[in-house]
């Protein structure tokens, strides 16, 4: 296995008396999709927040591309190629879909906010709009779109920063079965294909989706890592089955 793009070692987060994460290890390969699953409250979103810098860990280290990024502000991590979506939508509701994507591109390019390389930016944005089939919504205001489209816009926004590591937090929540299937196709298409796509870390409650698309899966339960490996191994792991269904099912 090649050197991982992201490596978290013994990450611990405590809130008051509650331990949200306890010495969690996590590795994300430079290509492909890594899944992060676990029951409710297992600490998945907290782990995401630690990786993207919105939550400072109580202990442990996070290395990204060989750098210790513990002290990096979120925007610095973003500029180094990390990009994420949110479980609870964080749209720029006052802007059109196209402007949501353009602003993301501008934020990721030095001087973008002063109009540098504007032509290249426009090209990237249009390309991603058509790849995600968002063209028919491009001029609609983001605040008035249904959840399914918003999830796509958040994905598009993240892709506009041309990430090396894409973190998706529950991207299928609020989507119906058809939308989920379409999302799954897009995800696979975006990341595999020419091998130039970003590495993906996927937090997802739809276990079916995770089992289908991920090459590696890490399972958290009550803030600890209880399993890690390829989907076929993980789904047979007694600890995982116990975590989801209870002891006797294992």
């Amino acid at each position: 296995m090649p050197e991982p793009l992201l490596r978290a070692n013994a990450v611990t987060v405590t809130f008051g008396g509650l331990i949200a994460l306890s010495e969690v290890d996590l590795e994300v390969a430079p290509t492909g999709i890594t899944g992060l699953i676990g029951p409710n409250g297992a600490g998945k979103t907290t782990m995401f927040n630690v990786i993207t810098g919105l939550q400072r860990p109580t202990g442990g280290t996070v290395h990204y591309d060989g750098h210790d990024i513990r002290r990096w502000a979120p925007q610095r991590r973003a500029r180094a190629g990390m990009s994420r979506t949110f479980q609870r939508l964080e749209m720029f509701v006052g802007m059109s879909v196209r402007d949501n994507l353009r602003s993301a591109w501008e934020a990721s390019v030095p001087g973008g906010v002063f109009g540098r390389q504007a032509a290249a930016g426009r090209e990237t944005v249009e390309e991603i709009l058509s790849r995600l089939q968002l063209h028919s919504f491009a001029d609609r205001r983001a605040g008035e779109l249904p959840t399914g489209i918003c999830r796509m816009v958040e994905l598009g926004r993240a892709l506009c920063t041309r990430p090396r590591l894409l973190l998706l937090d529950e991207p299928s929540s609020g989507l119906d079965a058809g939308e989920t299937a379409r999302f799954q196709d897009l995800l696979v298409e975006t990341t595999s294909g020419d091998g130039l796509g970003p590495a993906v870390l996927l937090v997802e409650h739809d276990v079916r989706l995770v089992m289908d698309v991920c090459q590696q899966i890490t399972v958290l339960d009550f803030g600890r890592r209880i399993a890690a490996g390829p989907p076929a191994e993980v789904r047979k792991d007694p600890a995982v089955i116990a975590a989801y269904l209870g002891e006797s099912a294992a």
Binding site: G53, S103, V113, A118
Partner: peptide, 20 residues
Amino acid sequence: PIGRRLQMVRDSPNATVTLG
């Protein structure tokens, strides 16, 4: 782009920082 940046900050601080 500057107008869009202001709107970003206003609409979602979290998304703004995680986009860079």
